[in-house]
Write a protein that binds this DNA or RNA. Structure first.
Lengths: 204, 204
DNA sequence: TTTGAAGTTGAAAGCCGGTTCAACTTTCAT
DNA sequence: ATGAAAGTTGAACCGGCTTTCAACTTCAAA
């Protein structure tokens, strides 16, 4: 077997035209669900935006849930693919986390629908929701472990730190990326990074 | 005028019996929405749990949205009322945040439905969702400002720190409160609090 | 004891959107 | 060129859920 899915009746497009329609549906779904949320968004809304007939939807997706699942994976991958290469440029372990937040803020500002899509996965497809955050956290934990080995950060870093910093990033992205993007992303990232590096305890 | 609402047709119970039914509906709704989420949860599910007839629901609430809004306010208040008095016992500004997270973890472990309810407000009632987090963040920012004045924390603390720490708390509550509560809450709170106080930068 | 306001009941109206389907069009390998 | 596979179409089906409503019951004040 080549692909991961068993595929009783395969909905993969076989044609360039089919591929185009599938992509159109997927990005129409990002708009529709981003604006209205999963439940208020409708399949007819998606096909209208995509410029195709209602029935065509079912050529490529089994159900409303199915396209949503595909969309969550897609967005999750997009964030990762935007952030990862930037982090690779960092000078050290602490700087890596600064760049991680900075680029996440940039991404959130450019794709404000991301929260409405990822967050709603908690209700539509819990597995995808948990997978998204568990993957993100374990990538971060791995970076921190390497940084610890290099001596960039304390030796006792563990998963709890990764979840803490990820939570920080998510909420800063919501507040200073999606809800209000008037402050420079660099400034937010710098403040948060100082917190991660030295904390806010009295410097004595 | 006494109350805040104009109340064209007032649904406030006038009777002890009415009050009891309303409370029963509200806590049934917490169960129903906590288990199934807003959209999969049904009003008949709520009235079944509450042990009353479908029609009685509309004696106290205008709509499904209406009871959800009431529920979000209720839960938001419950967290605040659980956490606030505990924080007041803290020895200093840093300890206050440790206790804040600790008691939030305890609360989340005892009320695992809280995430499904607050988070879904993002889609059902954005205003309530933002209000919840903005209130929480500004209470924290006020505490931090006081702590700064007292010299417990750096003088330059601001809203960004509050949002960062709140995000930390929310994600630690999800991961180590709701999803897996096998580690002692004190341990999680201590690790996160050390991050807040001194950061994870190399101690040099 | 009477009375009417408050509360209860559950059947059914009404709505809405996901999904199906059979006829039709386009594509492309041969 | 041609036929079979791939893709398109949108009306209609379908089931579920919110909301309404008019008859009925409870309760407490007069």
């Amino acid at each position: 077997m080549t692909a991961g899915a068993p595929a009783k009746d395969d909905k993969t497009p076989r044609t360039a035209r089919g591929e185009r329609t599938r992509r159109a549906l997927l990005s129409a779904a990002a708009e529709e669900f981003g604006e209205k949320g999963f439940h208020d968004g409708s399949i007819s809304g998606i096909t209208r935006r995509a410029g195709c007939a209602l029935g065509s939807f079912y050529t490529y997706f089994d159900s409303k849930d199915d396209i949503f699942r595909a969309l969550v994976n897609d967005m999750s991958g997009q964030v990762r693919d935007y952030v990862s290469p930037r982090i690779a440029q960092a000078r050290d372990g602490i700087d890596a986390e600064r760049i991680g937040l900075l680029s996440f803020l940039e991404f959130a500002r450019a794709h404000k629908e991301i929260y409405r899509i990822i967050d709603e996965a908690e209700f539509v497809d819990q597995a995808a929701y948990r997978a998204h955050y568990e993957n993100t956290a374990s990538r971060m934990a791995a970076r921190l472990a390497k940084a610890a080995a290099r001596g960039d950060v304390r030796a006792d870093v563990e998963d709890v730190h990764a979840w803490a910093i990820m939570g920080m990033n998510v909420f800063l992205g919501l507040r200073y990326g999606v809800w209000d993007d008037s402050r420079p992303a660099e400034e937010i990232a710098a403040i948060a990074n100082a917190l991660v590096e030295r904390g806010i305890g009295r410097a004595d």
